[in-house]
Structure formats: C-alpha cells, structure tokens
C-alpha cells in the first residue's frame, strides 16, 4: 500500500514537473515579456509529435519512425517548437495583445486538426504508440520505474529552471523588462523590441515543445485529444496561480494546480457512480476555474508573484483580454 502511494506520488510529481516546464516557457513569454500566447497546446503538440516521429521505429503507411535516441528526439522537438514559435512570432508579434491571443489560439487549433487528420503524418485520431520510454525495461516494477522517471524529469526541470532564472536576472532579462515597461523608450536606447520579443517567444515555445516530448516519452503514447485548448487553460491557470513573472511561481503553480486536478479527479471517481463519471470529468475544470477565481481575489499576483505589476501599454487604445487585466 505504502509502496503504491510512493509510486503514485512519484508519477504525480513527474507529470506536474512536465507542466512546470510548459509554465516556465509561458512565463518567459507572458510573465517577462507580456506576450499573450493562448496557443500553448499547439507548441506542446509540435514537440510531442516531432519527438515521437523521430524516435519511434519505422511504421508502414506513416511518415517518420527514424528510431533516434530519446535525447535526440527531445532536442529536435525543442528546435521544431522553437522554430514554429519563431515563425508564428515573425508573422504576429507586431499585432497588439488581443490579436496575438486570437492568432495563437487559431494556430493551436490548426495544429490539433492537422494532428487529427493528417493520418499518414501523425497517425490521425489513433495517435502514435510505441514511443520509446527512457526506463521502459523497469516498467514491471512500478516504484522503480516511477522513481527513475521522476529523477530524470526532475533533473531536466531543475536545469530548465536554473537556465531561466539566470536569464531572468541577466542583462537580457533586464532588456525584456524594459521593453515590457516601455518599448519606445527601450528602442530609443538602441534595443530592438521585436527582436527581443521574438527571442522570448521562440524560447518559450521550445520549452513547451520539450515538455510535450517528455510527456510523450513518459507515457509512450500520444493522440490529438491530449492537445485540446483545455491544456492551454491549465498551463495559464498554473502560471497565474503560481505568480506570473516568477520562475519559482511557475513551478509551484504547476504542482499546486496539477495536485488539485488529480485530487478532484480522484474524488469524482470515488464519490460518483460509474455511469456519471464521464460527465463528472467536467467538474475537474470547474474546480480549476474556482481555484483561479479564488487566487485572483485573494492573491492577485499569485502565490509567489512579488513585485510584478502590469500597466496597460502606452498608446494602446484596445483592451487586453480579461485574463490579462486580472494578472
């Protein structure tokens, strides 16, 4: 029983930490640069599919299956998601905040539809299976398997966290903050605002891709309905709950929100009869929504959000989306 609990705890934390990596990516985009990316799920999907196609064995009738090592798959996924974000950014970053949101949302939906319909590339609705798992041979012993996964993902998350912390405190991060405060003034000092925004957007996108790849390799199977807009909603909630602008907040928010998500799932499966379970899944989203509202009322800057304070950008007549105002 206790061993089961430990194994479950390790599995829970492993998953939460993959979300933490997405959150760190969103934090550099939104928390540090003010870019309203509502297409998180799309960049996660690109990473997951690219890594899956790079590392799976060849399969008749489907593209890819290059049988590369997992590390190579993750790196290629980062490059692909980063490039994808860079491309989206090149087209859209001159857009004002709310238009950028709409565009990224649309792109994420498009990516999901491609995953669903381009069967010869993505396996269509059945997804991709037999994705190599880093400790697949240990699977018969859940506690060893889950602990090994946790150690691996915790190591990666830790590296990403340290790298992002260093950037946030670096001269690069300082320029990002100056651009968020007043891009015309930053430009007058010789900083190219769009170049920095693009870098932040691509960097955030590549982290989302990394997280998607890690999830794919942990589970060993991916399908399009892993990458619905609800995923974007979850990651945003994690960042807002934890505290936008703070890397520690991004990690804490991911663990707290994923904890509530898992707990509410457990409760509905225990308390409700079997025939109601499918409907009850919606209650999980309700629980997350309630938590978001409570956090915004009680601690508007999030659990660990310190000095972060948003102002409407100058010369911007339009409104940002509501979530933007609330942060």
């Amino acid at each position: 029983m206790i061993l089961d609990l430990i194994a479950y705890g390790a599995f829970f934390l492993t998953t939460a930490l993959t979300y933490a990596i997405m959150c760190l990516g969103l934090n550099v985009q939104w928390g540090q640069t003010g870019l309203f990316n509502v297409g998180v799920a799309g960049f996660v999907a690109v990473g997951a599919y690219v890594s899956a196609l790079s590392t799976t064995p060849p399969l008749a009738g489907r593209f890819g299956g290059f049988g590369l090592p997992i590390v190579a798959g993750c790196l290629i996924a980062m490059v692909a998601s980063g490039a994808c974000a860079g491309l989206v950014g090149t087209i859209t970053l001159r857009l004002r905040a709310d238009y950028l949101a709409i565009t990224t949302f649309g792109i994420a939906i498009a990516i999901e539809l491609v995953a669903l319909n381009a069967q010869s590339l993505t396996g269509g609705p059945f997804g991709i299976g037999f994705i190599p798992r880093p400790f697949g041979t240990l699977a018969p012993s859940p506690i060893v398997f889950d602990s090994a996964n946790l150690a691996l993902v915790a190591g990666v998350a830790c590296l990403v966290f340290l790298a992002m912390e260093r950037l946030a405190r670096s001269p690069w991060g300082r320029v990002l903050r100056s651009i968020r405060e007043d891009d015309a003034a930053a430009a007058s000092l010789g900083k190219n605002p769009n170049r920095y925004r693009l870098q932040a957007f691509a960097l955030g996108g590549s982290l989302m891709g990394l997280a998607g790849a890690l999830q794919a390799h942990l589970i060993g199977f991916i399908a399009p309905d892993n990458y619905l807009p609800a995923l974007t909603f979850q990651v945003w909630t994690m960042l807002i709950v934890g505290g936008a602008g703070s890397n520690a907040g991004a990690v804490a928010g991911a663990i707290v929100v994923w904890g509530l998500w898992s707990l509410s799932g457990l409760l509905t499966s225990l308390l409700l009869p079997g025939d109601q379970q499918a409907r009850a899944a919606s209650l999980q989203i309700v629980a997350i929504g309630v938590m978001l509202v409570v956090i915004l009322l009680v601690r508007p800057r999030g659990l660990l959000g310190g000095s972060f304070r948003r102002r409407p950008p100058p010369n911007d007549g339009g409104s940002e989306l509501d979530a933007g105002k609330l942060v």
Binding site: P171, A184, A185, S307
Partner: peptide
C-alpha cells in the same frame, strides 16, 4: 519615459 518598475540603477544599465 523611465522604466517605472525598474530601479534608477537598472534604468541606466539598460542603456
């Protein structure tokens, strides 16, 4: 147009 939330020192360092 100072960077309002940054310190005086950080404002100057950005340049």
């Amino acid at each position: 147009r100072p960077f309002a939330e940054m310190t005086v020192m950080e404002n100057v360092l950005v340049a």
